[in-house]
């Protein structure tokens, strides 16, 4: 008798192996470690209960990510119902310094050169993640639902109980902030390209 560990089902082991990946995915989306943990736990439980549904599908991670997306949306929906999650709708004065009084660019946007090669692409996406982490909570949530999970704005409005206009404002803000962050940390300054300003 070799001292074999008590036989966990293969499926359960495979699920556990996906946990770190799922946690990262959920954390990026939810920005709350506890909520991310919960969503992943629910996902793994649902997967375990639904093993039969997986039979025949080729990719476990893809299947789990699909379940996780639903759990993430549930979680966001719950959070949106909490009274604290009021509208954070101020005006867009934050981006005024980018423009002259007449509404034209102070500093004209310069073309972004696409990252070249796998390594550079990987580093670039790392910087993008850092920039995402700096967005305000609600802005980030809407942006991630839109661009990371790929929901359309109607769905997002429904889930978060906000108006389409509010949704567009938050998405605008996220894009403006990310553009500045990427410009600063990746594309612009320090890469020598700042020289062709103008």
């Amino acid at each position: 008798m070799k001292g074999r560990p008590p036989e966990k089902s293969d499926f359960r082991t495979q699920l556990e192996q996906q946990r770190p990946y799922l946690l990262r995915f959920a954390a990026l989306q939810l920005r709350d470690p506890n909520a991310a943990e919960d969503a992943v736990q629910e996902t793994l439980l649902a997967a375990l209960a639904g093993e039969a549904n997986f039979a025949g599908r080729s990719n476990l991670r893809t299947w789990l990510t699909g379940i996780l997306k639903h759990k993430i949306i549930d979680s966001i929906r719950r959070a949106a119902r909490e009274p604290s999650a009021g509208a954070e709708l101020e005006d867009d004065a934050a981006f005024d310094p980018l423009f002259r009084a007449n509404g034209h660019w102070k500093d004209r946007p310069q073309a972004w050169e696409e990252p070249q090669g796998a390594l550079e692409q990987k580093q670039f996406l790392g910087v993008l993640e850092q920039c995402l982490a700096r967005l305000p909570q609600k802005t980030a949530r809407v942006f991630m639902l839109r661009e990371h999970l790929g929901l359309d704005t109607d769905e997002i409005c429904k889930e978060l109980a906000i108006t389409p206009t509010h949704c567009w404002v938050l998405l605008y803000r996220a894009r403006m902030a990310l553009r500045l962050c990427l410009d600063e940390r990746w594309f612009g300054k320090g890469s020598g390209k700042a020289a062709d300003k103008r």
Binding site: A111, E114, K122, L125, L128, H148, L149, R175, L178, R179
Partner: peptide, 18 residues
Amino acid sequence: DQMGQLRKAMQDLARDQD
């Protein structure tokens, strides 16, 4: 163009996390 690149980068990010 940058907004298009940003959208593409987000899609790459979702895929590339893998």
